[in-house]
């Protein structure tokens, strides 16, 4: 995984416990940060854009919440949105069930990925082999 990340660093959108949300920023600031920093998007525009995306995921209520106040699903969605805002994002999930501790399968992940399909160029999931069944009939290489 490390070599993959290094190879795609410029377009990388990592969803991992190793890349947490910034604790003293609201969810929308965490997500908007990517566009604000890389594209100098004005904050009000970035906020509106983020709000629309959160609506798409049905998570508009978490806009102004901070990381410690989120459930695992809300945290996952925020991380996914942040990753998908990278231009031509190559979204990489690093052991997503480490974040979504109370989910039994990958349907939730799949469902949210579909909603953000227009923003994401590629998706890669890195997880342990024994978690393979939780992803159902997904295609993929083992690692």
């Amino acid at each position: 995984m490390q070599s993959f990340i290094a190879a795609h660093k410029s377009r990388l959108g990592l969803v991992s416990l190793e890349a947490p949300l910034i604790a003293n920023l609201a969810v929308w600031s965490n997500i908007a940060l990517i566009r604000q920093y890389h594209e100098n998007m004005p904050w009000h525009e970035a906020r509106a854009f983020t709000e629309a995306l959160l609506h798409r995921l049905g998570m508009a209520s978490i806009m102004d919440k901070r990381n410690p106040a989120l459930t695992s699903e809300e945290r996952f969605c925020a991380m996914l949105l942040r990753a998908s805002l990278v231009r031509d994002a190559i979204v990489v999930f690093d052991k997503p069930f480490g974040i979504l501790t109370n989910l039994r399968d990958g349907c939730f992940i799949m469902e949210n990925l579909r909603k953000l399909d227009d923003l994401i160029a590629e998706t890669h999931i890195f997880d342990y082999n024994w978690e393979k069944e939780r992803y159902g009939g997904w295609d993929g290489t083992e690692s």
Partner: peptide, 23 residues
């Protein structure tokens, strides 16, 4: 604040997303 960000790996996250912490 900076020490907490370092301990929480938030600075690592910035690096992952190509955000320069100095800037």
């Amino acid at each position: 604040e900076i020490a907490v960000m370092k301990v929480n790996r938030e600075l690592n996250m910035l690096d992952t997303f190509n955000i320069d912490p100095i800037n």
